[in-house]
Write a protein that binds this DNA or RNA. Structure first.
Length: 235
DNA sequence: GAGACTATCCGTCAAGATCT
DNA sequence: AGATCTTGACGGATAGTCTC
């Protein structure tokens, strides 16, 4: 069990032991997350297909072996990378540039293709789109769509008016709220993407481990065979 | 069946990385 | 330098399994 899970488990239990009712979050997002996680959870279980299959990645990792020898040359570069917070996309894409065939983590194509760059991110629908294609929110949070079928902008996210046209404090407050909501929405999507990339990254690493283990085993066997051949016979 | 435990998901925040 | 992106950490929720 991971440290985080453990912490959460303890916390959850404390919460469950100490209170019967669940308190709403500050922003009243309880029902929001419930509604979303519910459907999203189901979809995630069924929608892992967008991630390359293990066999695919294994093949990829196998071809990566040739690039392995060049790794020594890159040690300096790698150290430099390690000193920074790693980006899954970067890591995988670097891997893929070393090794032809490694699936690159897609950049958000919608930035150039979609009419609403920030709101219609290239999220695999099989994974992240809810059954209704909508995220619903309660309280003062608006209902919005990830992929609005008809309009470029989702409901509740209106293009900001130019700052110069804002005079009243109320308008300023509205503008601030709108900006915050937009930021939260963007971050929400970014977090999803990040998690997806992380999963892909971990899968890639796992398959690589599997490949290297097999390779290691083969080499050990080969060594034993050579030993047998080369060793002087005593009888 | 109820409660404990576990795994996994999600949204949000904050801080560092990267882009413009 | 400021804006935007990325990701770790955290807290909340749900579903499945286990134990009593």
């Amino acid at each position: 069990m991971s440290k985080c899970s453990r912490k959460k488990y303890i916390k959850t239990n404390i919460r469950q032991m100490t209170m019967e009712t669940v308190e709403p979050q500050q922003d009243g997002s309880v029902t929001d997350s419930v509604a979303e996680s519910d459907s999203a959870h189901m979809q995630t279980q069924a929608g892992q297909n967008s991630i390359p299959t293990l066999a695919q990645v294994a093949t990829i990792a196998e071809t990566d072996e040739s690039a392995e020898s060049e790794g020594v040359i890159d040690s300096h570069k790698r150290r430099e990378i390690l000193s920074r917070r790693p980006s899954y996309r970067k890591i995988l894409n670097e891997l893929s540039s070393d090794v032809p065939g490694v699936p690159k983590i897609e950049e958000e194509k919608s930035e150039e293709e979609g009419p609403a760059p920030n709101l219609a991110m290239a999220v695999p629908t099989s994974i992240y789109q809810t059954s209704t294609g909508q995220y619903t929110a309660t309280g003062d949070m608006p209902t919005y769509q990830i992929r609005a079928p008809t309009t470029a902008l989702p409901q509740g996210v209106v293009m900001a008016t130019s700052p110069g046209s804002l005079h009243s404090p109320q308008q300023l407050a509205e503008e601030a709220t709108r900006k915050r909501e937009l930021r939260l929405m963007k971050n929400r999507e970014a977090a999803k993407e990040c998690r997806r990339r992380k999963k892909e990254y971990v899968k890639c690493l796992e398959s690589r481990v599997a490949v290297l283990e097999v390779q290691n085993k083969k080499l050990i066997e080969e060594l034993e065979t050579l030993k047998d051949i080369c060793s002087p016979k005593t009888d």
